[in-house]
Design a protein around this nucleic acid. Structure first.
Lengths: 206, 206, 206, 206
DNA sequence: GATGAATGAGAATTCATTCAT
DNA sequence: CATGAATGAATTCTCATTCAT
């Protein structure tokens, strides 16, 4: 019998669940949440409509699951950097690289997710129930928090100036996201160096 | 007869057209494009459903018109700065202040717009026909272009280092947007100084 | 312009609302609640699907409205009898006649309603939310209560034996319903006399 | 090996068939026919979905089988009374007791069945094919027919007045059913006496 | 026999848009 | 111009049934 490897969706790559998640990734990324239809997803997944609802409670939960499973390895990679024994600047650079790589791959899906969540932080206008939204916000917020933590270390150890680390983390984060969303990232290394350069030394000549 | 001033929507504030645009601003901002319904807009605008279609071809064009008209005075203010005879750094700071003020006011609507446009610059997955999308992109892109132009002047005049001004403009722009979307802006002056500080001198202690 | 009279549905007989309720009566009566489809109702009502949802929140509320509006004149007629100044036996006979006439007309719809309500009195297994169910039960229960009240008068005035009037009311009521549901009622007068005979004097020869 | 007795479902109580029928009784009784799902039945029966379709052709036939098998011992008990050599009044009382006992136990399932059948006797609006419906009607009708037969004996032997025995049978039957459906039966003996009292001697004082 | 993953026909509901008044 | 009743295309979700293992 042929060998099929376990993939990121926790199933062998032929499984219906996998096919659905892969198709959902594609359609949600291209269409956004509301314009994505279950019909298009199943057409792409080459499966029946009922099958989707065997694996997921509804469209929303399918979307949430997709985001969560995509996020997992990324989160793990970040955590590994945090736990490593490195100087703060090295950590930050490593994290930026991970961000760049992740968003280069998942830019479109994340854009959709962030929009549906109203930018990690608003109230009533999302398609998702308050409780679920909290989960998404966790997903998103944790990345920024990890970054802020690293910046804080930098400040504490005296290699960074006394800045508002939360704001700085968001700004740095948003820079990565913006570059990714605008497809400015051709070479992760080059982009990482560009960002590091600006954020470390500023734009001013001195 | 009472006096009603011409307002930003180009009509007297009692006019149906005005009421609809004001209501649309509210609803699109709170609900996003897809979850906003014409029914909710007319309820808020205290007008009939047909009236909306007297003034606008359809929901999409209503949205586009809203964005365009909101953008106009902002764009004008930016242009004024550009045309003024000031040193580049002063221009940039002035522009950042205008950005902050504008996004503080219009954060929610712009978030919606940017999402529906797929970040000023993507492919096929928006709700809007290719031609119309081009118009939106113009709206958004022009701001960034003006910023890039000011940065270029800075580089040319030797006050800024040799950086990729397009990238830098997007990054600076995204910083403003991120702060606005996360409601980090309490005091425009303070925020402007915070951003100027980071982007001019960087985060590193040196 | 032609004259159209106000009918029991509170609208002129051409109105869409009327057409929908009339069609709903037909379909719910023939098919029961679950097997009735909105598609069939609109086909019969010669209207569009959206129109149904302009007048009614959903299928359930359409059904409830139908029952309530059908019930109203019936309820009023009963109340009139109760309020009249007649001896108890005359009241009871009059009520039975009203029941017979009403159920002869509405047997099928009421059968459906009673089933969906689980016979005026059960718990979790209906299609309708607890609150709404309470309303239905009221509709049904009130008839029986009025009957019990008349029986009580009879007992109090010494023309009826000391019986459990609640049970007796249900039994008498169920007799009417059963005859109606089995299409045993050809002539209301004859049926009324038959029931009066059995319930007054019993079946035994003495 | 342990002993498992043959039960009313004609199988040993461990058998899958038995478990399914027992679960089906529970779910159909609580939810009614349409709201009952095969999924809920198999969850309760602790069996697989396919197994249901090994034993029964479809949901409808499962329901019909359930009703038929529940009805069998009841029918037998009734027949025994009919065949016994007793005076008519004793027969009728005995039958009423059997009815009361049976409906006390099966009220909910029978309510569902009667509804789905449209009261033993209607036209096109049931979930069941004409032929099958005939079978159900037989199940239900036979009880009433046996009762009518006993009443006829009473009339023939001069202990009952000259009444329409078919109507009287339905009325007496409906009284039992109504009491059962309304959970008025606490003590079968007391209820039997109450009904016998009303139907023999009437409600009037004389 | 037992199982349960896969399926798709069918149903309810939403909402942008039209058009007669 | 203003209106809002009427519409139906589009979409999500359910659930009985099949069939390969």
């Amino acid at each position: 019998m042929a060998y099929y490897r376990e993939d990121q969706y926790g199933g062998d790559s032929r499984s219906k669940r996998h096919q659905i998640l892969a198709a959902a990734y594609d359609v949600f990324s291209r269409k956004g949440y509301h314009r994505a239809t279950v019909d298009e997803i199943i057409a792409l997944a080459d499966t029946g409509k009922g099958t989707v609802y065997n694996y997921f409670n509804n469209k929303e939960q399918l979307f949430y699951t997709l985001v969560r499973e995509r996020n997992q390895p990324f989160e793990a990679a970040l955590q590994q950097v945090i736990d490593a024994d490195q100087p703060p600047m090295a950590k930050i650079e490593a994290m930026v690289r991970i961000f760049l790589r992740f968003y280069q791959e998942n830019a479109d899906l994340w854009r959709v997710m962030m929009h549906e969540m109203r930018g990690f932080g608003s109230e009533d206008l999302s398609f998702v129930k308050a409780e679920t939204r909290e989960k998404y916000r966790e997903v998103l917020g944790s990345s920024v928090k990890l970054l802020a933590k690293a910046l804080k270390e930098g400040v504490d150890q005296g290699v960074l100036r006394e800045i508002n680390v939360t704001h700085a983390a968001y700004v740095l984060y948003s820079a990565v996201v913006t570059m990714a969303f605008n497809h400015f990232i051709e070479d992760v290394e080059a982009s990482a160096r560009e960002l590091a350069d600006i954020f470390q030394y500023g734009m001013a000549k001195h």
